[in-house]
Amino acid sequence: MEPKRLRYTKDHEWVGRDGDTYVVGITDYAQEQLGDVTYVELPEVGRRVAAEEETAVVESVKAASDVFAPVAGTVASVNEALETQPELVNQDPYGEGWFFKLRDVKAADVEGLMDATDYNAFLATLEE
C-alpha cells in the first residue's frame, strides 16, 4: 500500500482500499514506538466490529497496544503470516505487515478519517 493514499486514525492505524475490502494495519510511527513486535493477536474472521472497537492486540517486549477498527465493518480475513512472523509489522508496516481486512464498510466512514497530510501534521504535534 502506498502511504500517501491511505487514511489514518489518531491511534495510528491506517486503512486502505483493496478491491471490495479495506485493509487495516498500524503506521510506521506506531511500529517504531512499539519496538520489536513479538506477538500479534488477530480477530476471528466474520466478527462484526464497530468503529474504534478493540480488534487486535500487538505486543512488543516492553509494550502492548490495542489495535482499533478505524471504521465499522466485518472481518473478512486476517494476516496469518503475523502469527509466525510478527516482525513483518516492523519490516513492512504498510505491506506484508497488515493486520486484517474489513468488508461491509461504508466508504464515507473511511473518507472521514485523516489523509496522509493531516496525519503527518498530527504526528508533528506529538513530537513537541
Binding site: T38, Y39, E59, V61, A64, D66
Partner: peptide, 12 residues
C-alpha cells in the same frame, strides 16, 4: 511475555 502484566497493560 511481560506485555500481559499490570506494569505494562495496567487496567487491561
Amino acid at each position: 511475555l511481560q506485555a500481559r502484566e499490570q506494569h505494562i497493560r495496567r487496567a487491561k
